[in-house]
Every structure is written in C-alpha cells, then in structure tokens.
C-alpha cells in the first residue's frame, strides 16, 4: 500500500514537472521564435515587455486569458469548444512516453525518468498524432466557415499523408533497436546515435514530422494569406491560445522524438540526461525556426506530390535496404 502510494506520488510529481517544463518552454519558445525570426529578417523582434522582451510570453498569455472567448452562433458548439483541447492534449500526451534520463535512485527505489514506459510507445505516439488530426479537422469543420473548413480539410489530408511517411521512416529504427519502447530505442543508441546509420530515415522523419506539426513550409492548414488563419480562423481568446500552445508543444515533442529516435535520446557526455535531451530538443527547435525564416509555403499539389511520390517511396526503399543489412 505504502509502496503504491509512494509510486503514485512520484508519478504525479514527474507529470507535474514535465508538464510545467513543457508549457514553460512552449511559452518561451514563442519568444525565442519571434526574436530569432526577427533577426533572420534583419528586424529586432519583441523588445518592449521587460528586458529583451522577456516578459512578452507572460503579457501574451495574460492577453489571451482576458480576451473574450467568442463562440460564433453558427458553429457546432460542442465540437467547436473541444477541438482546441484535443490539439493541445494530444501534443502534451505524446511526451508521456519520452524517456528523459537514466533511472535515478531515491531512497533505495529506482525511479525511471520517463512517465510511462509502455512497450508499444511508438504506436502510442502515432495514435496521439493521428488523434491530433481530429482537433484540426473538427475544429475547422465545426467553425462552419469556409476558411476554417478549407484549412481543416487541408490539415486532415496533409497530416494523414505524412503520417504514412513518418511511420515508414521509423520502421528501420524499430528494426535496429528491436523494440517499440522508446526507452529501449534510446538504450540501443548508447554507443552511437542512429542518425549515423539511418540518415535517410532521419531526413524523412524530420520533414514529415514538420509537416505533421503544420509549420512553414507545411503550414497550409493555416495559410494566413489564403485562408485568413485556416482552421482556427473563428477561434479567439484562450481557445486560440490552446491551438497555439499545441503547436509549440508539438515542436518540442518533435525535437524530443527526433532526439529519441535518431540523436541518441538523453545520451551524451558530461552533462546529465535531461539536460542533453533539452539541448537536443532546443537544437531541433532552432533549426525549425531557421527553416521557417527561410522557406516559403508549399503549394497544395507540391505538398501531396512530395509526400506520396518522394517521401513514401524513399522510406520504403530505405526499409528494404535496412532489412537486407539487418539480415546480413
């Protein structure tokens, strides 16, 4: 009973720490992105709220929270209200299976630094990112406005297409590690990160995951200049904020997954595991911001052609080659 209780408390603490860190970083990732994007475009970026604009995320969240939460009359109310939560929730839940360090021992009990080490973690991640599609598609549909609908449809099509290449790009990783559990996959990379043996998978995963997180150059579901704001056109206040948080948590999840599958997870010299994971996540986030500052948005047909005609075949060929090597 006591052991169970202690375990429960430890779990709650872990969840609290992870959630807190994720949301805090999400807020400051917005600041980093705006600052960096500004510099990439030879601007200054936000610099009014606090020193270097450091209080900007706080000001923004205050603004979001105090704004009116408008629900247009013609919307499908229940779905409209739930959709943003789906996006933010699925993004956060994906982090439940990401290991962020070696087991630590506290009072004679080993505490694994992962919220939940399930043996089908990889499938869980796919399930969550597929569920995330519902947030976008339903949010766009329930808004009952043509921009939102178009954004929602695009989002659904894009995310489902790229889900395929994400899945296929990870098959070689699973073949090498021999497990679906992210803890095992990270453990298998103790000697060398998989990016060295699977560069093609790495690139396919990176591109598809970026499409999955709906960021430039894959931000067709939002596409400000064609669709207003796409699937979240009708949202305001904190519900819009939830979509926003979802996006930035998604960036972190993407960084974490990229680190876990290809960059050796929390493995790294000198520094403790969580720090390494954080460094890798941030590095991926910075690269994504750089990409955002550089590339224009793809056209819809280009997006589909790229996904189905290039990424999926490349991933399939990669699987075959990896399979041959594993057999030998």
């Amino acid at each position: 009973m006591i052991a169970w209780l202690v375990g429960f408390i430890v779990l709650i603490v872990k969840i609290a720490v992870v959630l807190g860190t994720l949301l805090f970083i999400a807020a400051y990732l917005v600041w980093v992105e705006r600052k960096l994007l500004g510099r990439l475009q030879v601007r200054l970026g936000p610099n009014r709220a606090g020193k270097f604009g450091l209080l900007q995320p706080i000001a923004d969240s205050l603004k979001m929270l105090t704004k009116e939460d408008i629900v247009p009359e013609a919307v499908d109310r229940t779905i409209f209200l739930l959709a943003p939560a789906v996006v933010a929730l699925t993004a956060l839940l994906m982090f439940a299976v990401v290991p962020f360090g070696e087991d630590i021992t506290l009072g004679g009990r080993p505490i694994p630094l992962v919220i939940s080490d399930i043996n089908v973690a990889l499938l869980f991640i796919f399930a969550m990112s597929s569920l995330g599609v519902y947030g976008v598609a339903l949010g766009g549909w329930a808004s009952n406005s043509k921009y939102s609908l178009l954004g929602g449809i695009r989002g659904a099509a894009q995310m489902i297409s790229y889900e395929l290449s994400i899945g296929l790009s990870l098959v070689p990783v699973v073949m090498l590690a021999g497990s679906f559990s992210l803890v095992d996959i990270v453990a298998a990379q103790a000697r060398y990160p998989y990016v060295l043996v699977q560069p093609v998978s790495f690139i396919i995963f990176f591109i598809s995951a970026m499409a999955e997180s709906k960021r430039i150059p894959f931000d067709l579901p939002e596409a400000e200049n064609e669709l207003g704001a796409g699937f979240h056109t009708e949202y305001s206040g904190m519900r819009f904020g939830l979509f926003f948080i979802g996006e930035y948590v998604h960036i972190q999840v993407l960084g974490a997954l990229l680190a876990v599958f290809f960059l050796g997870g929390w493995h790294g010299p000198y520094l403790p595991g969580p720090v390494w994971l954080l460094i890798k996540m941030m590095a991926v986030a910075l690269v994504m911001i750089w990409i955002r500052g550089t590339l224009p948005r793809l056209r819809y047909d280009q997006l589909m052609a790229f996904g189905w005609k290039i990424l999926v075949p490349a991933a399939l060929i990669n699987i075959v080659i990896t399979g041959a090597f594993v057999l030998i």
Binding site: L36, R39, L40, W290, T294
Partner: peptide
C-alpha cells in the same frame, strides 16, 4: 539558408 543565416 545561408542568406538567412548571414542575416542573423
């Protein structure tokens, strides 16, 4: 990418 990087 090099252009944006230089702008940094």
């Amino acid at each position: 990418f090099s252009t944006t990087f230089k702008h940094l």
